[in-house]
Amino acid sequence: MILMTNPNALAPLGEQPVILQVNGQSHTLVAPANAILLDVLRDRLHLYGTKKGCDHGQCGACTVLVNGEAINSCLSLAVQHEGDSITTIEGLAEGDRLHPVQEAFWEHDAFQCGYCTPGQIMSAVALLNDPNIAADDASVREAMSGNICRCGAYKNILAAVQSARTKMGRDV
Rank of each mutant, 00 (worst) to 15 (best):
S26Q: 11
N67Q: 03
S123M: 09
A70G: 12
F105H: 13
L92A: 02
A135K: 14
H56M: 12
L45N: 04
A135E: 07
V18S: 13
M122L: 04
L20T: 10
P100T: 11
R97D: 15
E107A: 14
S139L: 03
F111G: 09
L47T: 07
S123N: 12
C116E: 10
D137T: 15
D96W: 12
T117H: 03
V66M: 11
H56D: 03
C116R: 13
L47G: 06
I19N: 15
A35K: 06
Q21R: 08
A135D: 08
A31G: 14
A33C: 13
C113E: 06
L98W: 05
G83W: 02
G95E: 09
Q102I: 07
Q112N: 07
Y48M: 13
P32N: 15
D39S: 09
H46V: 12
E90F: 14
N132A: 10
N132E: 10
C54H: 02
H108F: 03
N23P: 02
A110Y: 00
G91Q: 06
S85Y: 10
A110N: 02
Y48E: 07
G95C: 08
I121V: 13
K51M: 05
H56T: 10
E94Y: 05
L45R: 05
Q25E: 14
N132S: 13
L127H: 02
V40D: 11
D109Q: 15
V18A: 14
L127G: 05
A93K: 05
Q102C: 07
V79W: 04
Q58W: 01
C116A: 15
C54S: 05
A31L: 13
Q25P: 04
N67M: 04
Q58M: 10
V66T: 11
D55I: 10
L77H: 07
A35S: 12
M122H: 04
S76F: 05
G49N: 05
E94P: 07
D136N: 13
I89S: 04
Q80C: 10
A134P: 01
E82L: 07
K51G: 08
A134H: 07
N129S: 14
I36R: 03
A138M: 07
V66D: 01
A78R: 00
A124V: 02
V66K: 12
A31T: 15
N34R: 15
L98Q: 06
A70V: 10
S26N: 09
V40T: 14
D43R: 15
A35V: 09
A35L: 10
L20P: 13
P118C: 13
D109N: 14
G91Y: 10
K51E: 04
L77W: 08
A33Y: 13
V66N: 05
E82N: 11
